[in-house]
């Protein structure tokens, strides 16, 4: 403090390098993209008025609701069962672990379309489904067709298949948590279930959330396979209309616009959920898209940001 400080030299002012290559590349890419879009938009037999008309048609909107219901229910089944399967897979009990392994092997190894088909047609081989207690007369049963309606068939097919994928995602998340964490929790007297729920899973979330977001977005689109079980979801509805007015492409575009809108919303949601679960692991939270867009406008001319400006991903002390 006592010493006299040398004056800080003025900040460097220099003429920026001309990034001619960047500008040329941008123009070329934009030109190609514009050409492709133009070709489709002006296709002679593409009736955009039909697209516009059906975009907000009641049947389509009902289809969207069904699609969302299917997606949410199938993902809920997938996540819940996936967590159970992942914990089973890591269990010290070899039988429990093997059952989980077998489930994943089976449901990941057969196409989801076939699985939906299977549930939908279950009644043809198993006319009645019943529950009973062995060696007693207590028994309850009902016709399969009344139990497994098309919607349930599709939900089961999608959800049970999803569980196999979610199990692997959750398992990867659990394994990613440093062993010292469960050791510290054990040393405090926590049981395996408690430390899983309070210590390991919350930290595994950071690894689990991004692929789960992808799975949800993927599920939203995969739910269109419910078409084969005649579930009146978005794609089924659009094709029902198309079979009446023969505007197949226009109605496929209608469905696509809605799928895109929904996946876009999910993408934004995923970003904020990831930000939430990143608490305590990153010193600077990642930029929101608006912040990033602003920064991009500023830095388009400039060289890429120095590493110091990027959010620090590593925890302190490594």
């Amino acid at each position: 403090m006592a010493e006299a400080l040398r004056p800080r030299p003025a900040a460097i002012k220099a003429v920026p390098v001309r990034h001619t290559g960047r500008w040329v590349a941008a123009v070329v890419v934009l030109a190609i993209a514009a050409e492709v879009v133009y070709t489709f938009v002006t296709a002679p037999d593409l009736h955009w008025d039909v697209v516009r008309h059906f975009l907000s048609q009641r049947l389509i909107l009902q289809g969207i609701v069904t699609t969302l219901e299917l997606t949410v229910l199938a993902m809920l089944i997938g996540i819940a069962l996936g967590v159970v399967l992942a914990v089973m897979r890591l269990s010290p009990n070899p039988v429990v672990s093997a059952v989980s392994w077998f489930y994943i092997w089976f449901f990941r190894g057969t196409p989801v379309l076939v699985q939906i088909f299977f549930w939908f047609n279950l009644a043809s081989v198993l006319p009645y489904i019943g529950l009973g207690i062995p060696f007693t007369t207590i028994h309850w049963q009902a016709p399969t067709n009344s139990l497994i309606a098309p919607f349930l068939a599709a939900t089961l097919g999608l959800g049970l298949n999803e569980a196999a994928y979610m199990a692997e995602i959750v398992r990867a998340g659990i394994i990613s948590v440093e062993h010292g964490q469960s050791e510290a929790a054990q040393a405090l007297g926590m049981t395996r279930m408690l430390l899983m729920r309070r210590i390991v899973l919350p930290q595994a979330m950071r690894v689990i959330i991004p692929p789960t977001g992808n799975e949800t977005i993927s599920m939203l689109k995969t739910s269109s396979l419910a078409f084969v079980a005649s579930v009146p979801e978005l794609f089924t509805r659009s094709q029902q209309i198309a079979s009446a007015n023969f505007r197949v492409i226009e109605l496929a575009i209608v469905a696509s616009i809605w799928y895109l809108a929904m996946t876009s919303i999910l993408t934004v949601g995923q970003f904020y959920v990831e930000r939430y679960f990143g608490r305590g692991t990153q010193r600077g939270l990642p930029l929101t898209p608006i912040q990033r867009f602003r920064r991009m406008l500023v830095t388009f001319h400039a060289p890429p940001p120095a590493p110091a400006e990027l959010p620090v991903l590593l925890p302190r002390g490594h």
């Binding site: 010292g180 510290a184 007297g189 210590i199 919350p202 930290q203 305590g280």
Partner: peptide
């Protein structure tokens, strides 16, 4: 678990719960 809860342990790498 109950017996462990009566013994405190401090680790080389701290092992605090980061969340």
């Amino acid at each position: 678990c109950k017996k462990r809860s009566e013994i405190g342990m401090v680790f080389q790498r701290f092992n605090l719960f980061p969340h």
